[in-house]
Amino acid sequence: MTNKLGCIPQLDIRIPVVGSILPYTTLLQTGILVESKPQPTVRAFLGSLPGFTSQYMNERIETIFLNGLPVDDLETIINGSAPILAISAAMPGLAGAIFRKNGFHAPLRTTITDDSSDEVQSSEQVMILLKFFNMIVSERGGAILHDGCLIKCNSVRRFMNYRPQLFSDVLPMSCDNKKMDFVEVINMLHKSEIVFLKIQQDTASI
C-alpha cells in the first residue's frame, strides 16, 4: 500500500469464524492514523468512519479530547500538523464530568491555551491520530479493524507481546500476502513504523 507515508506493509489477520473480533479492538485505544483533508471539523472527520452517524456522535460520544484539550463542540476544527483526537463514551467521576462535552462542571477545567491554530496549516492531507476509549472501542472498533486501518507498529507489537494468547489460535497471519508466524510478524513490526492492519473473521473456513 502506498500513500503520503510511503510504502506501508499490510498485515492481515484472520480469526476463526467462531472467534470474536472484540478482544482485538482494544488495540484502538492507542490510536489509528486516518488521512484527512486539512482542517476538518470533528463531526466531518468522524462522520467519514463506519458507524459514526450523527446520532451516535451526538449521543454516545460524551468526551472528546483534541491535542490534549477537551472539546465541547463537534464543529470544532481539527488544527495542527499532527493532530491527536481521542473520543470516549460517558466517563465517571468528577473528572469525567469536568471533561464531558458541554458539561455542567466544565468551569472546573484548567484553562489551557490551544496553540495548534497558530501553526501554519498545511493545504495537503493530514494524518490524524484517532484514539478510541471506553464503549466506543467495542462498539465501533470491530468495523474499523475489519475495513483496515493504519496503526503504529509499536502499538501492534506491544499489544501482541502483552496478549500473545490472542494470536495463538488465529489462522496464519500474512504480510503483503506472505504468510508469517508470530515471531515473523513481530520482526516485521520492528522494521516499520506504520502498518495497515486488517483483522477479519475467516468466512472461508465455514
Binding site: 463514551a89 466517563m91 467521576g93 469525567g96 471506553n134 464503549m135
Partner: peptide, 22 residues
C-alpha cells in the same frame, strides 16, 4: 445512565486513558 454502562463494563479504571489524555 451511560456512565453506569461504562462502569459496569470497565469499572472505574476506564478513567486511565482519558485522564492520561488530559
Amino acid at each position: 445512565h451511560p456512565v453506569s454502562q461504562a462502569l459496569g463494563t470497565y469499572g472505574t479504571n476506564v478513567l486511565v486513558n482519558i485522564i492520561n489524555e488530559s
